[in-house]
Amino acid sequence: MLTKRIVPCLDVNDGRVVKGIQFVELRDAGDPVELAKVYDEQGADELVFLDISASHEGRKTMVEVVQHVAAELAIPFTVGGGINSVEDMKAILRAGADKVSLNTAAVLRPELVREGADYFGSQCIVVAIDAKYDEETNGWKVYTHGGRKLKDLDAVEWAKEVEALGAGEILLTSMDSDGEKKGFNLALTKAVSEAVTIPVIASGGAGNAVHFKDVFTEGKADAALAASIFHYKETSVEEVKSYLRKEEVHVR
């Protein structure tokens, strides 16, 4: 049986991991490669690197980061942030990433998803969806530009559309739950996961191990992503997994 995946996420700016990271045992807590190794040792199934560099130089540095991570790690990883073209995808995938994640660029030009899937295969193309509850429709709307711009697009419909365009996976972030640490958005995750036949990574709201169980069982997620609870050592991938095993959720 396929296992549920635990995916730590690292924000990278100009080649350095940002957002307070509290791994005291590290020589350099800002080094993406060192942090990736720690998570690998804890049993992370996969990693996501989100490039938040605003500059062209920062983007170029990201390619070098990807090369170093790929040289050191034997687990899959995804790179997202600022990928706008097949050329951008090529640079990141050639450097050794397994998947690229498209967000705003996919909303602005959905054909980009198809172009990427045709060129590299669906398994390389993740579409990240930032979704927020909308009272009027009693559903969830898609936001772009890091959650700053509302798009008149239903999140569940958009998920179906990107699947049809050839996306291999969906990284679904609930903007309502993000940062609250009160648990993943189960209703949103379930709605999207049941609407598509590709894997869904739930993101936003992880506060403890129980939240992971809930998103895998009730939320029907295939994988769950978290950043701060791992970075701040509130829990570890190991702890979450041992709890899930006790609860009979299948993990590696």
Partner: peptide, 19 residues
């Protein structure tokens, strides 16, 4: 196949860690 013998849908691609 996207369905098992009992007709339950499951996801393709087969993506992730398996035994």
């Amino acid at each position: 196949p996207k369905e098992d013998r009992e007709g339950n849908a499951y996801k393709v691609p087969h993506m992730g860690w398996n035994l």
